Amino acid sequence: MTDNDSAAEQTPETRGRHRLDSRMKRRRVLIGGVVVLTSAFGAIGYGHPPRSTPYTEEDWTNVDADIAPFQRSKTPAERAAWRFIEDEGDGLELAAVHPVAVLGPVLGPDDPPSLRLIRGMLAGDLAICPPFGSSWVDVRDVADCTCAP
C-alpha cells in the first residue's frame, strides 16, 4: 500500500492483498506468470441497478451505495491487486474469478452460518423458508477453475 491509498481502501482485505501481491512478485517463476485471484461477486455486482447482461472488467461495485461492509471491502481489495499488477507486476498477468456464495464441504470442524441455514431449510427446522433468491457455487468448482491441473 502507498500513502496515496484512501482510508476506505485500507481494509484488512486490502492490506492482506498487498502482502500477497508482494509475495506473488517475488515468486513469479513458481506461478508461471499468471496470478488467479479468487475475488467475490461483491467486488463487481452491488450498488447499481439489476441487469441481465454479463459483467465485464469495466464493472465495479459502487462502494458509495448502501451495501454491506463485506461487499464494500471486496472492491478496493481487488482494485489494489490490479494496481499492483499494473505498477509492480513486472510481467505478471492477473485473472480474477468472482464467485457468488461459495458452499461445499468444510475442511475442519467449522460450521459456517450459510451451511447451517441451508441445512435448517432442508431439514424443515426453520419455521419458515425465507423468501429470498441467491446463487451458489460449489467450493470444488471454484478450486478447479483457480488451480492448475
Rank of each mutant, 00 (worst) to 15 (best):
M1S: 15
M1G: 15
T2H: 05
D5Q: 07
S6D: 13
A8N: 10
E9M: 03
E9Q: 10
T14Q: 03
G16I: 00
G16T: 04
G16C: 01
R19K: 05
L20A: 14
L20E: 10
L20N: 05
R27N: 15
L30N: 11
L30G: 06
I31N: 11
V34K: 12
L37P: 01
T38G: 09
F41N: 05
F41W: 05
F41E: 07
A43L: 04
P49T: 07
S52D: 14
T53I: 08
Y55W: 10
E57V: 04
D59V: 09
W60L: 10
A68R: 14
Q71A: 15
Q71K: 02
T75F: 06
P76Y: 05
A77G: 07
A77D: 08
E78M: 04
E78L: 01
R79Y: 07
A81P: 08
W82F: 06
R83F: 02
R83T: 08
R83W: 00
F84Y: 14
D87L: 07
E88H: 14
G89K: 05
L92Y: 09
V97C: 05
H98W: 07
P99Y: 06
L103A: 08
P105W: 13
V106M: 07
G108S: 13
P113H: 07
R116N: 11
L117P: 01
I118S: 02
L122R: 08
G124R: 00
I128F: 11
C129W: 14
C129Y: 12
S134N: 11
S134D: 06
V137N: 01
D141Q: 04
D144Q: 15
T146G: 00
